[in-house]
Simulated assay, not measured.
Amino acid sequence: MSSSLETLAAKLAEDCLKAMKATGHERLYVELGNVIGASSQTLEEAFLTEVRIRLSDQAAREFLIRRVRELKDQGAPE
């Protein structure tokens, strides 16, 4: 069952993040989490974890790109 749970949570997270990007609604995942949680707290927790992991990854990558540009602009060695 955990394989199904992880698969469903990951797919929902990907779809939700795409919808968030398309609509600009940054808290859509919270609303969807509430809908999921009404019938399955287990899936809700897995979904929210998947979303948070992806949002964290996006933020970290954006930071890294920005920071590397700053360092290059300052003449730091590669």
Rank of each mutant, 00 (worst) to 15 (best):
M1T: 13
S3I: 07
S4Y: 12
S4T: 12
L5C: 00
E6G: 12
T7I: 08
T7W: 04
L8M: 13
L8D: 09
L8F: 11
L8R: 15
L8A: 14
A9H: 01
A9K: 03
K11L: 08
L12Q: 07
A13Q: 02
A13G: 00
E14G: 01
D15M: 15
D15K: 15
C16K: 04
C16V: 05
L17D: 03
L17K: 06
L17F: 02
K18C: 01
K18S: 08
A19C: 07
A19V: 10
M20E: 15
T23S: 15
G24A: 00
G24K: 03
H25E: 13
E26Q: 12
L28H: 05
Y29C: 04
V30A: 09
L32H: 03
L32M: 12
G33L: 09
G33T: 05
G33F: 08
N34T: 07
N34R: 14
N34C: 09
N34P: 02
V35N: 14
I36F: 06
I36K: 04
G37I: 05
G37P: 06
S39H: 07
S39R: 13
S40T: 01
S40N: 01
S40K: 06
Q41W: 07
Q41C: 03
Q41Y: 03
T42M: 09
L43E: 07
L43V: 09
L43T: 05
L43M: 09
L43C: 02
F47G: 04
F47N: 04
L48I: 11
T49P: 01
E50F: 00
V51K: 03
R52V: 00
R52D: 05
I53N: 10
R54K: 13
R54E: 05
L55N: 02
S56M: 07
S56K: 11
S56F: 09
S56D: 13
D57H: 11
D57T: 12
D57S: 09
A59P: 00
A59V: 01
A59G: 00
A60R: 08
E62V: 04
E62T: 05
L64A: 15
L64T: 10
I65G: 02
R66F: 08
R67S: 10
R67N: 12
V68M: 10
V68I: 15
R69A: 15
R69N: 14
R69V: 10
E70Q: 13
E70N: 08
E70S: 10
E70R: 13
L71Q: 06
K72E: 15
K72G: 07
Q74R: 14
Q74I: 00
G75V: 07
G75K: 03
G75S: 01
P77Q: 05
P77L: 05
E78R: 14
